[in-house]
């Protein structure tokens, strides 16, 4: 069962990659543009830190590290799960979603596997560079265990992005296209680029327990920053990722059920 899906995903990927290579210029342009976009954000932080030494007690490299984790986690979502954006206007509205329902495989799997987003590689690239730049400047010694935890944290971060987008994209089953909502909620992740401690308490709680974007960057990064005071909470990151994925998938199934009973 699982191996069959892995095989299928591999085949979907292969096809998607072939299409990508067909438009090589596009691929480069996409990757480059996203890299430039990310770079603009980092440059901004750099400019600000040219004038200050610390932001609310956080150093430049610590901020950079948070930024890097956010970018890398988001790139997982951007590369593999980008199709979530299109549920309403490319699948449900034109009736293309029906196609997925008459296939003998899980419709969510099919829907996700339908697309691989090339532009996300730019984000991944920048994210890794940023993390790599910031790492030696943190006062922690990097061993195998630390690396392992870092990778787990980044993957968890990616899946939190996925879960949140999946949850709000699912609303499309009731309202045809929930893209404005998905987009607005996604914009909340802007908060997560900086230490949550700079925000008002209400915002912090909201981003920790309601829409858990805090776990996509700040908390996982704080695990590696000595004396951040969030090391304990940071360990929850994988748990939050799993719980939100399960919750989002449950919600997706509810949506699917509603969709098959109204067919709108």
């Amino acid at each position: 069962m699982l191996s069959r899906y892995i095989k299928l995903y591999y085949l979907f990927c292969k096809q998607n990659l072939k299409v990508m290579l067909e438009y090589r210029m596009d691929f480069l342009l996409g990757v480059l543009s996203v890299m430039l976009q990310q770079f603009a954000g980092i440059f901004f932080v750099k400019i600000v830190f040219d004038h200050i030494h610390a932001l609310n007690g956080w150093t430049f490299y610590e901020i950079l590290f948070i930024y890097g984790i956010a970018a890398t986690g988001r790139s997982i979502h951007h590369i593999f799960f980008d199709n979530l954006w299109t549920l309403g206007w490319q699948y449900i509205r034109p009736g293309k979603f029906d196609r997925l329902l008459i296939r003998p495989i899980n419709p969510l799997f099919h829907f996700i596997a339908d697309r691989l987003q090339q532009d996300g590689f730019g984000q991944l690239f920048i994210g890794i560079i940023v993390i790599g730049t910031a790492m030696p400047h943190l006062s922690i010694s990097w061993g195998v265990l630390e690396f392992f935890i870092l990778v787990v944290m980044i993957i968890a971060s990616g899946f939190i992005f996925v879960a949140i987008n999946l949850f709000f994209a699912t609303l499309s089953f009731w309202m045809v296209d929930s893209l404005p909502i998905v987009w607005t909620i996604f914009n909340l992740s802007d908060f997560a680029r900086y230490p949550l401690t700079i925000y008002h308490k209400g915002i912090r709680h909201f981003l920790t327990w309601i829409v858990p974007y805090g776990f996509t960057a700040f908390y996982p990064a704080a695990y590696f920053i000595e004396g951040s005071g969030f090391e304990r909470l940071a360990l929850l990151t994988p748990v939050v990722a799993i719980v939100s994925c399960i919750f989002a998938y449950w919600f997706w199934n509810r949506g699917l059920k509603a969709f098959t009973s109204t067919g709108s």
Partner: peptide, 18 residues
């Protein structure tokens, strides 16, 4: 002369905000 409109758009936005 190009195809990837989205990329072009993002690149423009990035340069402008820069």
């Amino acid at each position: 002369w190009t195809i990837n409109l989205w990329g072009l758009q993002v690149m423009k936005e990035a340069v402008i905000s820069f």
